[in-house]
Design a binder for these strands. Structure first.
Ligand SMILES: [Mn+2]
Ligand SMILES: [Mn+2]
Ligand SMILES: [Zn+2]
Ligand SMILES: [Zn+2]
Lengths: 142, 142
DNA sequence: AAAATATATGCAACTTACTTGCAATTAGAA
DNA sequence: TTCTAATTGCAAGTAAGTTGCATATATTTT
C-alpha cells in the first residue's frame, strides 16, 4: 500500500474538500514528520490564514487523521495518524531540543508495560525518551 | 527515611530560605501529587504573588527539587522529585481528564525499552497511558 | 548587633499560543 | 444554476507564562 492521498482521505472522513484542507493535508502527508501549526503557517501563509490552520488541525485531530504528540513544548506538536505511521516512541534531545520519531515498540513489550495497570482501561500509550541525540553528542566532543 | 523537610531541602540546594519558598515547598511535600502553578496559587494567594510562584517553581525545577510531568494540558504539571517519588508512568483519563500517578516500572522493563535506541544517549523516560479510569468506567455503566 | 550587599519579591505591563464572533465566501446538494 | 449549510478570514479576545524595575528581605561582613 502506498502513501495516503489527501483528497481521498478527506472524502473518506466525510469532510468537505476545500483548497485549504487539501494544501494542509498534502503537506502533512508529504513531509511525514512532526509538525506544529506555525510550521505549517510558515509554508502556507500566502494561501491560508493562521486561524484556518488551527481550525483545520483541530478537525483533523477529531477525525483521527492526525494525532497530537505528547510533549512539553509551548507549541502543540502533531503527526500523521495512518497505517503508514503507527504509534511509536519519541526522543527529545535536551541540547538541540528536537523531537525525533523512533521505531514502534513490539506488542509484547507494550503488553508487559500494561500488565500492572488493573484499575484502568488503557486505550493508548505514549513513550518519550529524553537525552542527547547523536549529532549533539558528536558536536559536544569537538 | 521519612518525608523531606522543606527548610533542610532548600538549604541543601543552596537556596535562600524565604517565607514564600518554604510555604510552596511545604505544600508540595505535604500533598505528594501532581500540581500546577495555579493550584498552588489558589491555596497561597493571600501570602504569595502568582509571579513569585512561577519563579520559585522554575528554580525548584532547575535544582531538581521537582520535575515537570509530560502532559498535553495547557497548564504545566509538576511533581516532587525525591527518593520518595521516583520516576513513574502516569495515566490520563479521557473522560474526567485527570492525571494519575502509577507504580514505577521495573528496571528490567526499562532496559528492554531502551534496547532499540542506539543512536541516542538516554537519560530519562516518560510513559503516559491514556484511557478511562475506574471511577469513570463505573459511572458510565450507571 | 548593625550595616552592607546580594538576592527575592510584588506589581504592572508584556508576549505568545490559541480561541471566538461575525460577515463574506465557497463546496456540494437540489 | 440556484440554494444552503459549512468554511474561511479578519479583528478582537483569552489565558499561561515572562520581563522590567522599584522595594523588601535573607544572609554576609563589619
Ligand atoms: Mn513520531
Ligand atoms: Mn506522578
Ligand atoms: Zn540534539
Ligand atoms: Zn476518569
Amino acid at each position: 500500500m502506498d502513501k495516503c492521498n489527501a483528497k481521498n482521505l478527506l472524502v473518506s472522513k466525510k469532510l468537505k474538500v476545500t483548497k485549504q484542507r487539501q494544501l494542509i493535508l498534502e503537506r502533512i502527508i508529504g513531509r511525514q514528520g512532526i509538525f506544529t501549526v506555525n510550521s505549517l503557517y510558515t509554508k502556507l501563509e500566502d494561501e491560508i490564514d493562521l486561524v484556518t490552520i488551527y481550525r483545520v488541525i483541530s478537525i483533523f485531530e477529531e477525525k483521527g487523521i492526525i494525532r497530537e504528540v505528547l510533549s512539553n513544548y509551548e507549541e502543540k506538536r502533531y503527526e500523521l495518524a495512518c497505517i503508514h505511521n503507527p504509534v511509536h516512541p519519541h526522543f527529545n534531545c535536551s541540547v538541540c531540543n528536537e523531537l525525533f520519531c523512533l521505531e514502534a515498540v513490539s506488542d509484547n513489550l507494550i503488553k508487559l508495560l500494561q500488565e500492572n495497570i488493573s484499575d484502568y482501561l488503557v486505550k493508548d500509550i505514549s513513550i518519550q525518551f529524553k537525552g542527547i541525540c547523536k549529532k549533539c553528542l558528536e558536536n559536544n566532543l569537538t
